[in-house]
Design a protein around this nucleic acid. Sequence first.
DNA 1: ATTTAAATCATCCTTTTGGGTGATCCGTTT
DNA 2: AAACGGATCACCCAAAAGGATGATTTAAAT
Lengths: 140, 140
Amino acid sequence: MKRTIILYGLALALFVSGLKFLEYRFFVRDLSIEFYIGIIVVTFTGLGIWVGLKFTRKKMVFVGPEFVLDVNTLERLEISKREYEVLELIAKGLSNQEIADKLFVSLNTIKTHSSNLFLKLEVSRRTQAVQKAKNLRLIP
Amino acid sequence: MKRTIILYGLALALFVSGLKFLEYRFFVRDLSIEFYIGIIVVTFTGLGIWVGLKFTRKKMVFVGPEFVLDVNTLERLEISKREYEVLELIAKGLSNQEIADKLFVSLNTIKTHSSNLFLKLEVSRRTQAVQKAKNLRLIP
DNA sequence: ATTTAAATCATCCTTTTGGGTGATCCGTTT
DNA sequence: AAACGGATCACCCAAAAGGATGATTTAAAT
């Protein structure tokens, strides 16, 4: 940040010097005003671009990849809401029993849901289900 | 992209019109050259910033968070190389038997490694191990 | 030379998971 | 009214995973 300000100041100083020099030439050698304007335009466009980059680059680094659920795939695979809930909890590392407790249903119900889920995801283990679901952007 | 170019063209056209207008006033009303230059400077600095943002924003979105293994934590938990290998394969969704085949050792060996791993990670299931290992930046 | 840590394998036992099948209930659609 | 998809639960069985403990080998550290 400090470096940026210093560089900015240096650039300004340099430009002011350039202006003085040009002004001198303008009056002495009768340089065209279009040329004068052209220099200013190019300089400050560049300066603007530079400043724009400086002040957004660092902020942009923090822009993580946001998760967007692929509803399309979710519908294509015909995964129901309840099955998706179970998928989320499986991804959190919960056991079937813990999932059953959390959703206030029986262990058998969760087993049915997860079985159907594995069929639809074409996997045979919960760890694979989590992997595939992440690849399909069904979970973060 | 097309929109950007069109907008850029429009802005330029607008600015040229402004210039003509100012040029007119400059000669007619004897407006100070400093004011003239000020307008140009402000306009093109802004234009530069805008252009700089336009052409970097989209590229910046792809800046993902790179994975850096937390060797510190790895050593603190005293996780051996073999155990780490097993952890990686567990995270890939492989079963103990598949891991055993891949590493050319017996199923029992893998069970021992994974058990020790779970102790060190303070978890009791492989899915939790994967979760925790990701949080600890042991795996991507 | 002795200790230590890692890696290997085994045995026993329990819990968890996965696969298959069937049944009930409840809305929605036809 | 009948068909359908969803959510729910049960029972059975086999495979996988997990916990505890002990043993052997080998390489590195003391």
